[in-house]
């Protein structure tokens, strides 16, 4: 790709949404939910199973100051990595659209999409019971940002399955944060995860979060 060209977009070759994927002109408001979880935990699967459009991908380029900062030449190396984020869409009614973004658990990726969590209704933390430690960090970061979240535990065949109570203790989650089982491949199951989040948000809107 030639980034020097100012014509990065050839208008004739841009493929837009399929007709059935366009929103009605009455769509006037959008809300978002962020699905957070470690690599391969099922973020894209969950987004895809409930989305009305095939999941789309947005990319940002991340430049990381080189690791060998004090190498012989003393030249700071920069490496560019492309980080992708998948997202999907659900039309709630004629006016309101819900977007679902699936983002990796590492906080450094969240900065690539400026304001990813700002104004989000809430988040779903997808937990891989084979790598619980990833979730500790994610949960801590969301708490820091005051982002309300629920925890969904994916049922992978080879993963240890915890009773919900044990998982709550292991993740050090307060009693009011919902934890649910899910199979991200199934639309009904993924929908239930989102419903759990919405019921939780509703309870917070009605009675402020206990602290």
């Amino acid at each position: 790709m030639d980034f020097k060209s100012s014509e990065l977009v050839d208008a004739d070759t841009v493929v837009g949404p399929r007709v059935e994927d366009t929103l009605p002109s009455s769509a006037t408001a959008a809300v978002k939910i962020v699905i957070v979880g470690g690599f391969g935990v099922g973020k894209t699967t969950l987004v895809g199973s409930v989305s009305e459009i095939r999941p789309l991908t947005t990319e940002e380029t991340m430049t990381q100051a080189g690791v060998g900062v004090d190498d012989v030449a003393g030249v700071e190396r920069k490496t560019a990595t492309t980080v992708a984020m998948d997202f999907g869409r659900i039309s709630i009614n004629d006016e309101l659209v819900l977007y679902l973004f699936g983002t990796p658990g590492q906080q450094r990726f969240w900065f690539l999409w400026n304001g990813l969590f700002r104004g989000a209704l809430g988040a779903v933390v997808l937990v891989d019971t084979r790598r619980l430690e990833v979730s500790f960090d994610v949960i801590g970061r969301l708490e820091e940002r005051d982002v309300p979240f629920v925890v969904a535990m994916n049922t992978f065949p080879d993963a240890p399955s915890y009773p919900i109570d044990e998982l709550r203790t292991a993740l050090d989650l307060p009693a009011h944060v919902p934890i649910v089982d899910c199979d991200a491949r199934k639309r009904a199951s993924s929908r239930d995860v989102l419903m759990t989040l919405m019921r939780y948000l509703h309870s917070l809107a009605v009675t402020p979060e206990p602290s």
Binding site: V31, L96, G115, H202
Partner: peptide, 25 residues
């Protein structure tokens, strides 16, 4: 359209609308 709502917590009516939409899925 639809710039970010300024409220820290979304209001109950908005959440109810989203729940209605999800139920139809």
């Amino acid at each position: 359209r639809a710039l970010v709502p300024p409220a820290q917590l979304p209001d109950a009516a908005l959440i109810e609308a989203v729940m209605h939409g999800l139920q139809k899925l």
